Simulated assay, not measured.
Amino acid sequence: MTASERDKMAAGEWYSCLVDELEALRMTARNAVHQHNAMAPIERGNMASALRVLFGAVADDVFIEAPFHCSYGINIHLGARVYLNAGCTILDSGRVAIGAGTMLGPNVQIYCAEHHRDAVLRGQGLEVAKPVTIGADVWIGGGAIILGGVTIGDGAIVGAGSVVTKDVAAGAVVAGNPARPLRRVST
Rank of each mutant, 00 (worst) to 15 (best):
L147M: 13
V158Y: 04
I134R: 02
A40V: 10
E21M: 02
A10L: 15
H69Y: 12
L18W: 11
T133D: 06
R44I: 07
G79E: 12
L84I: 08
R183M: 13
V128L: 02
A48K: 13
T187M: 07
E21F: 00
T2P: 15
Y72K: 00
E65P: 00
P67Q: 04
D154K: 12
G155L: 13
V132P: 02
R122L: 05
N31S: 12
G142Q: 05
I146R: 02
G141Q: 10
E5S: 03
A11Y: 04
Q35G: 09
A170C: 09
I145P: 01
P41M: 03
Y111S: 04
D167G: 04
S71G: 10
L22A: 04
W14L: 01
D167M: 05
L91I: 13
V185S: 07
N75M: 03
D7T: 02
G101P: 00
G12Y: 03
G73I: 07
A24M: 08
V108N: 03
D137H: 11
A3F: 01
V53P: 00
V62Y: 02
A11R: 11
R184G: 14
N46I: 10
S4K: 03
V150H: 02
A11H: 02
G161T: 12
R30V: 00
G143T: 12
G148V: 05
Q124M: 05
T89E: 11
K130G: 01
A24P: 01
E13S: 08
E23P: 00
A32G: 09
A10C: 09
G125F: 01
V158K: 04
G56M: 08
I157N: 05
L54R: 07
A48I: 10
A40S: 15
G125T: 01
K130F: 12
A119R: 11
D7H: 00
V185Q: 14
A136P: 00
G155S: 13
C70K: 00
R81S: 15
V163K: 05
A32H: 07
V173P: 03
G125M: 01
N46K: 13
I42K: 13
H116A: 14
L182V: 14
V53M: 14
S93G: 15
L121N: 06
V82S: 10
V150F: 04
N85Q: 11
N46Y: 13
T102C: 01
V150T: 04
L182F: 09
P41A: 08
I64T: 01
A57F: 07
Y72E: 10
E43C: 10
R95E: 08
I110P: 01
I152F: 02
T102M: 00
